[in-house]
Design a protein around this nucleic acid. Structure first.
Length: 208
DNA sequence: ACATTAATTGTGT
DNA sequence: ACACAATTAATGT
């Protein structure tokens, strides 16, 4: 665990802090498609991503969900940190997109480190900014882009995160993540296929 | 190997 | 949005 920490964070954190993280943090390895936390659950800590990717969702009272953004290696979910500071119930859902490794840090420790380590404060601040930028990006896309463009963004982002050209997903699932309906997604995908941007197969989309 | 069923995708209104 | 057809995968016999 120390080794992995140094690899990713050696340049950012002091030696001492790295050892503290290793001491109080718990390493978790999860398979693909594993729900790390659901809406309404008690927040126990903040994740530091070591490898893999995690999808962060928001869901409204009707059970409609929407993909907000991905967490990737070196990321942390600092938005949730600030969101959950007071109300300790999760407002988001986190599901792994890939098999992932991460370190959970108890909320308690974070407050202590904020006082003690400038590098930790910087990290929080920087991470917060990155997360916020991503959020604004998806917000812009929601507000100003048509669904077709949004779908294309979704596909290219998924391709980037997975590092593969073949995306294994059903139209129904895409519809859920973009908060649309299956039929609409099917039609748009067909359109994209005809324009040569993708190829459709069962349970799979090939990016070109 | 075959039949049955469920899941996924395509299309017209 | 809804209904239905067509295609493919999964399962049991």
């Amino acid at each position: 665990m120390i080794l992995e920490l140094k690899q990713l964070f050696g340049a950012i954190f002091e030696e001492e802090l790295i050892h503290e993280i290793a001491k109080v943090g718990t390493l978790r390895e999860v398979p693909e498609d594993y729900m790390l936390i659901d809406i309404g659950e008690q927040i126990k800590g903040i994740p530091l991503m070591i490898s893999g990717a995690i999808k962060i969702y928001r869901e409204n009272a009707n059970g409609d969900e929407l993909l907000l953004y991905y967490l990737e290696e070196g990321d942390s979910c600092t938005l949730t940190y600030t969101l959950e500071m007071n109300a300790s119930k999760s407002k988001i859902r986190a599901i792994s997109e890939l098999p992932s490794k991460l370190i959970m840090i108890p909320l308690k420790q974070m407050k202590v480190w904020e006082q003690q380590y400038p590098s930790w404060r910087n990290f929080l601040f920087r991470s917060y900014q990155i997360r916020m930028d991503e959020l604004i990006e998806t917000l812009d896309s929601l507000a100003f882009d048509g669904l077709e463009k949004r779908l294309m963004n979704y596909l290219t982002e998924k391709k980037r995160v997975n590092g593969k050209d073949e995306l294994q997903i059903t139209h129904q699932n895409i519809a859920l993540e973009l908060h649309s309906s299956r039929v609409v997604i099917s039609r748009l995908l067909k359109k994209l296929e005809l324009s040569g941007k993708i190829q459709l197969r069962r349970n799979e989309i090939l990016m070109v």
